[in-house]
């Protein structure tokens, strides 16, 4: 028993060790904060893309519908790792797209764009399942009182689609939270999976505890999101 406590104690020391300048060697909380920020910005981008794409998919203009369908299918079918690598190796290295700041800022922004583009296709599909809960007759009634397509989409179809798609949007968000760890292959070396790899490299005797630490961290983040999405999906459902 005491040996186990000792082992835990030495893991704690390992976890909280500081470098010569007093900074944490393994900034676990800071790493989670990076993933939360990645989630926030790419989630926002994905939702925005999802709304635009689903509006295109229900629009009366065929070329918009085709473009939106193509986008959804392409990004849903490419592995996320490939999308992120492409942002790094093609967009940053080859095309030289930068944002004028530090390298890590570039990588962060490019990872957000990659994550946003990838999950945007899932958000679009989630919203489309929401659109399917809105009876076609309501869009017709909207047209019949003289609302334009944009007005009808904005005021009648999409608000109900959102409320009918809370659960799948929540699922996409949960997948996104965990998928932000893929940003490590895009050069965002300060996020959780990178820090985790570092810890395993320098403290292989703690490998199980290191895994446990990060797993618990994600569980703590994901559980409230799941609960909120279940709660909201019941509360917001449109009565028909």
């Amino acid at each position: 028993m005491s040996a186990f406590l000792e082992y835990l104690g030495s893991y704690w020391d390992f976890l909280t060790q500081r470098g010569p300048n007093g900074e944490l060697t393994f900034d676990v909380l800071g790493a989670f904060w990076v993933n939360i920020q990645l989630t926030f910005w790419s989630g926002l981008l994905a939702l925005l893309i999802g709304v635009v794409v689903v509006a295109m998919r229900i629009s009366p203009i065929a070329s918009l519908r085709i473009t939106a369908t193509a986008y959804t299918n392409i990004f849903r079918d490419i592995p996320l790792t490939a999308v992120i690598l492409m942002m790094w190796l093609v967009v940053w290295t080859q095309l030289g797209v930068t944002f004028g700041g530090k390298m890590i800022t570039d990588f962060f922004i490019l990872a957000v764009v990659g994550l946003g583009l990838y999950h945007g296709s899932f958000m679009a599909e989630a919203l489309r399942s929401g659109v399917n809960t809105v009876p076609l007759g309501q869009a017709e009634a909207a047209r019949a009182i003289g609302l334009t397509f944009m007005q009808s989409a904005r005021m009648i179809v999409l608000p109900q689609a959102f409320r009918g798609a809370v659960a799948p949007i929540g699922n996409t968000l949960i997948a996104l939270i965990k998928n932000t760890t893929v940003a490590s292959v895009g050069g965002v070396s300060i996020e959780t999976s990178s820090v985790m790899s570092g810890m395993i490299e320098f403290g292989p005797q703690f490998i199980f505890l290191v895994f446990l630490t990060f797993a618990l961290g994600y569980v703590v983040i994901v559980i409230p999101v799941g609960m909120l999405s279940t709660h909201l999906s019941h509360k917001l459902a449109v009565k028909r």
Binding site: G137, A141, A144, Q160, R163, K239, R240
Partner: peptide
Amino acid sequence: LRAEVGMVFQSFNLFAH
């Protein structure tokens, strides 16, 4: 022009939200 023509449907089609 559609606004000048009122339409009433079999299935009501009220905006549910």
